[in-house]
Every structure is written in structure tokens, then in C-alpha cells.
Write a protein that binds this DNA or RNA. Sequence first.
DNA 1: TATGGCCTTGGAGTGCGCTCCAAGCAAGCG
DNA 2: CGCTTGCTTGGAGCGCACTCCAAGGCCATA
Lengths: 162, 162
Amino acid sequence: MLQTTPVTIEQTPNPPDVCSAPPPRHPRPDGQDSYTISEVVAFTGLTAHTLRWYERIGLMSHIDRSHTGQRRYSNRDLDWLDLVGKLRLTGMPVADMVRYAELVREGENTFRERYELLEATRRDVRARIAELQDTLAVLDRKINFYADATGVRYHEAEGTAR
Amino acid sequence: MLQTTPVTIEQTPNPPDVCSAPPPRHPRPDGQDSYTISEVVAFTGLTAHTLRWYERIGLMSHIDRSHTGQRRYSNRDLDWLDLVGKLRLTGMPVADMVRYAELVREGENTFRERYELLEATRRDVRARIAELQDTLAVLDRKINFYADATGVRYHEAEGTAR
DNA sequence: TATGGCCTTGGAGTGCGCTCCAAGCAAGCG
DNA sequence: CGCTTGCTTGGAGCGCACTCCAAGGCCATA
């Protein structure tokens, strides 16, 4: 129950059918979904500090509490954290994610704005991927050079760093 | 001479032939390559502060100086900055780039280590691209949902943020 | 000669995203 | 009962990558 390895919530042991709407699998079924903070730490790889901080800054709404005041996360919270994790690795600033969270809390009349925010993000992500592929090409060339050179003692000019 | 728009040094007005070793084009030919810091600012989009800081921390070797002590950057320096820019957007920490710069300064006997560093970086970049493509899939699904919903007033569960 | 523009330096400051601390409470166990 | 474990809080601290500051030098044009 208390696994220590950070695990992506949305694992991919789903069949090799390349389909478009993979529903996230949860550790426990809806109805019994009540996770302590340390369980969420184990599932997400985030620290408890970070989880509490996310809540403080409004990136997560107030989490349900046990009768003793301890946090009890739900499957929906896990889904949200999964999205946050994805947005985080696009480089989206936390402030923007908070903005999105506010829009979600405000209800359906913010659909248009959410749409625009996500669309802008998608553009950024695409640009980012393109940049990275560019970088990959440069790395490939340099790596090939060094692969040839180590063992052949050869020289090619490269950017200065003397 | 003093263009204000940040310009990628390695522009792509090269013919649409998809080839593997694109030599960077420089603003001035070798021999007349002597750029002031503000020119480099214009070319790279970095600030003068950052350029001087890069030099202080050893990410660039000491740059040539004019008789009055002002920095004069060369084409080789521009090439190096181009590589640094690429590595930077892979998320490589500055300290690692400094390490690589040191290896380059140390000479050919560090080829193997440079190779390994770049290879590790390439692995990271590939993983990163995969993550981003994953994220892109999530964004696509959400964006489609909002595209449908705005105008159709429809509902689908999404991660909680109440 | 004076004014403005561009450059120099060491060191201090900033913003972001965590990260940690101290003090304390509640539950479970021997 | 005492001890451990896990959780709670507000607020302070940290590491990274810049970013800026104050004080001053050099030189071209008016």
C-alpha cells in the first residue's frame, strides 16, 4: 500500500490499442477513494510539502479532511494532480496553472477562457518539441563526431571554449 | 548594425534541402568577426548581464578584448553561444554546461567524457520529447472537449478543482 | 570642453518553485 | 503511561539562473 517508487498515476498497462481517450486508472475504485498525503506522495512522486503548498496557493481546492483534520485525497484529486504534472513539465508557470484552477472552480461559463488558455499552451508545447528536435539534431552531429574521434584521434572545429 | 529583435544565429534561410550538417551562418565572415557585447545581445537575445555572467562562471572562456578593454566576440564565440542556447532549452543545468566547457578547454583527451555527457543529454532530450507528446495528447483531448462544449453546453467530468 | 552613449567591474538583489523547520496533536502499541 | 509514527500549521530558507546597481572609463560629436 505504501509503495516508495514514484509512479505515474496514468500508467500504460492498457492494451496496445492506440486509442484516443485513455481513462486514468486509479489505485482504488471510486467510493473507496480516500488517500492519505503519504499515499499521494507515493503515487505522484511529489513531496508532502509540495502537496500542501499546492493547496495553499490555490492550485488545488481544499482537500477533504478526516475527522481528525488530516487530508484525504480523492480520485478526482489524483486526476487533477496528473494534469498538473503534465502542465508542469511543459514549463507552464505555476501562476498560470493556478489561473486555470480558478477558471475550473468558477464553473462552465469559463469554458471559452479555459479553451484559449489550453490552446496557447498547446502552441507552446508544439514549439518546444520543435526546438528540442532541433537540439537533438545538433546533439546527433556532435555525438557522431565524438564517436568517430574517440579511437581515431581526429579534429574538427567546434564552438570556442578554448 | 544594431538590430533589436532577438535573432537565432543559425537562421534557416538555407535552401530547402534537408541535409545533415548545416554550418551556422555568421553575421560577418571569419577575419572580420569582432562583435561588441550589444551586437551579441541583438544576435542572441541574451542580455549583456547574462553574457558577462556566463564568462565569469566559466561557461565561456575569456573573450578577446579591444585596446580599451571592451569585449570583442568572435564567430567561434557565437557558435558556442548557439550550442549553449540549445543545451539551455533542454533544461540542462548551467553547472553541467560549465563542466562541458571545461572539458572542451582541457583538450582532446576529454573526447570520451564529452561523448558520454552529450549522450546522456540526448537520452534526456528524447525522454522529454516523449513526455511532451504525451502532454500534447492530453491537451488535445481537453481542447476538443472545450471546443465541443462552448456552444453546445455539455458536461464531462474533469479533475477536481471545484 | 562638455554631453551622451557604450562599455567596465564586484557585489547585491530578485523571482520562482519548492523545501524545510519547529511546535504540536492524534492514534496505535507494549 | 510513555513512545513512535504520521499528520498538522505558518513562516523562514534555499538553489538556480539570472538581473540589476553604483561608480567609473573611454571616446565621438556639438
